[in-house]
Design a protein around this nucleic acid. Structure first.
Lengths: 133, 133
DNA sequence: ATTTGACCTGGAGTGCACTCCAGGTCGTAG
DNA sequence: CTACGACCTGGAGTGCACTCCAGGTCAAAT
C-alpha cells in the first residue's frame, strides 16, 4: 500500500510539516512519488517512522537518529554500530525511568503533605487555620 | 548557612547563569545579598532549587514551575491549587514512565534481533553471511 | 598601588525541533 | 472552464531553556 502525506501524518502521529522536515534532514529516505509528483509513503516508510517516533519518545536527539538512519543505509556491515547505539539508548532509558521513579516518590510525599494540611485546615476551629507550612 | 552563587550552583547542579536566569524569570525569589552586593543563598533557597530541579526532571515546563512558585508566595490559601498542580504532574510522570517502559520493550526486541544476526553471521560458513536483514 | 578573581548588570546569542508562509502546480468536481 | 483542495518548494519564523558577552565593581593578595 501507499499513502498520501496526509494519511502518513495521520498514521504516524507526526505533522505533515514534520514529515517533510524529517526528509529534508535525512531522517527519512525520500519516499516514492505519484504521477503528479506528490509523495507516496510505503508501509516500510511508515514502519520506519513508527520506530523513529519511539526513539524520539525515549529522548534520543535528532542527531543520533540521523546517525542511526545513515548506518541503516550502509547495510549489514553497520549492524554492530547500530546495535551499540540501541544498547546505549536502552541504558539511558532505564536510567531515565529510575530518575522519574524518584521524582514520583517526591511528588507523592509532597502531595501527601498537602493532603494533611487540608485535613488540618478542615479539622481545627475556624480562625486558627495557620499551621506549619 | 549562606552560600555564594558558585557554591549554590555546585550544590544545586545548576549553572551560575541558570541561577541568575531563574531569579530573573521569578522561579526563585531574589536571595539575600552580602555587604558587597553579591548573592547569598540560604538553605531554604537551596531546598527550593532542589525541588525545582526535580520538577524540571519530570519535564514540567518553566511556565508551570513559575505558576507553582507564584502560588507559593500567596501562602496557605493557594495550597489547594498547588496540590492540584502536583497531582497533575504526578499523573503525567506515571504516564511517561509507562510510555518509556514500552520503548524499552521495543529496544530490547530490536537489540535481540541484532544479537541474533551477529550469531548467524558468526555461525555460517564464511562467504555466505548475507541473511535476512 | 595594582593585579587578580569572583561577582555584578542588561542584553544578545545559541541549539533544538519543529512550524509557518508565500507563491506555485495538479487533478477532479460542478 | 474555472474553482477547489491537496499537494509542492525554499526559506523564514517560533518557543523553549538556557548560555554567553561586554563592561563594570569590589575585597583580598602581592
Amino acid at each position: 500500500m501507499s499513502y498520501s502525506i496526509a494519511e502518513a501524518a495521520r498514521r504516524s502521529g507526526l505533522s505533515i510539516d514534520t514529515l517533510r522536515y524529517y526528509e529534508r534532514i535525512k531522517l527519512l529516505d525520500p519516499p516514492a512519488r505519484d504521477t503528479a509528483g506528490r509523495r507516496a509513503y510505503s508501509d516500510d516508510d511508515l514502519g520506519w517512522l513508527g520506530f523513529l517516533t519511539k526513539l524520539r519518545t525515549t529522548g534520543m536527539p535528532i542527531k543520533s537518529m540521523r546517525e542511526y538512519a545513515s548506518l541503516r543505509r550502509h547495510g549489514v556491515a553497520s549492524a554492530g554500530r547500530r546495535k551499540a547505539l540501541l544498547v546505549e539508548q536502552r541504558r539511558s532509558v532505564a536510567e531515565r525511568i529510575a530518575e522519574l521513579q524518584g521524582c514520583l516518590d517526591i511528588l507523592d510525599y509532597k502531595i501527601e503533605n498537602y493532603a494533611q494540611v487540608e485535613r488540618n485546615v478542615l479539622g481545627v476551629e475556624p480562625g486558627r487555620e495557620e499551621i506549619s507550612a
